[in-house]
């Protein structure tokens, strides 16, 4: 089985601004593999290192040491090739709010080398699937929060990525829209797109994902199938398992401090 993502002994330390504080170790030797076709949950509290890990995979963050590969292409020495496989839906809105929906998507396709005419054709089914077709000429700042999230999904899919990384895609989205996004994500996963999802809605991860990793303070606590994780913890809800694991981490840390 091919690995869509393979990460080995990955470290990232952020230097503090000059004269302020000490360096922050965001990742401390993370090792992880995501198989092609998987629907994978990357869970952890705020500041655990999820976004840093995603940043390294997508070329937004420079790793300190270790290895990260996308479909066997190292993200540092073969970055251009590795990036062709990825579509990223970031946590924060990062599109030009003055641009129209269609222009945002077509421009993104252009950065991947898809000519405008081709991108316009490719955008139609994606926008229709995500319920944005009627809004294609609307400036993005006029969209609702849920629509802005879906716009970022559409933008990430325009070049036909084999790996879709979603960093808290349903934050601030109402229940109905969240469910429709689930349906859409299940559909594209079934069609072959590997998906990595970070979310604070643990029900979402439980419903959608086959495999899960929980990260805390830059280290992976567990990495196994969702089914086996829940079975190992007496068929508890994922939320309880998560709290137990994160809590256990805190207790260990307190003991070490004492």
């Amino acid at each position: 089985m091919t690995h869509a993502v393979s990460v080995s002994n990955l470290y990232k330390t952020y230097d503090p601004p000059k004269g302020q504080g000490s360096p922050v170790e965001a990742l401390r030797g993370v090792t992880l593999a995501v198989e092609e076709g998987d629907f994978f949950a990357l869970l952890g509290p705020n500041g655990a290192g999820k976004t840093t890990l995603i940043g390294i995979l997508t070329g937004l963050v420079t790793k300190t040491s270790g290895e990260a590969k996308i479909f066997n292409h190292p993200v540092d020495t073969d970055a251009s090739r590795a990036k062709t496989y990825i579509g990223l839906v970031p946590q924060e809105f990062n599109f030009n709010i003055f641009e129209k929906v269609e222009d945002i998507i077509v421009t993104q396709a252009g950065y991947y080398g898809t000519p405008r005419a081709e991108a316009l054709k490719a955008a139609e089914p994606i926008l229709k699937d995500l319920g944005l077709w009627d809004k294609r000429y609307t400036p993005s700042q006029q969209l609702s929060g849920g629509m802005k999230r879906r716009l970022m999904i559409a933008r990430a899919l325009i070049h036909g990525p084999k790996l879709l990384i979603l960093d808290e895609p349903t934050a601030g989205v109402d229940v109905e829209m969240r469910r429709s996004m689930w349906t859409f994500l299940r559909k594209i996963n079934k069609e072959g797109t590997t998906i990595i999802l970070t979310t604070h809605y643990l029900e979402e991860a439980e419903q959608l994902c086959r495999n899960v990793a929980i990260i805390n303070k830059g280290s992976i606590l567990v990495n196994q199938s969702m089914q086996s994780l829940l079975a190992d913890h007496g068929e508890e809800k994922l939320e309880q398992v998560y709290l137990d694991l994160i809590g256990a981490g805190k207790e260990t840390e307190n003991e070490q401090t004492l």
Binding site: G59, N94, F95, Q108
Partner: peptide, 10 residues
């Protein structure tokens, strides 16, 4: 952060 659109591209 619109620069990210370019940085994530190949």
């Amino acid at each position: 952060k619109t620069l990210d659109e370019i940085l994530v591209s190949p």
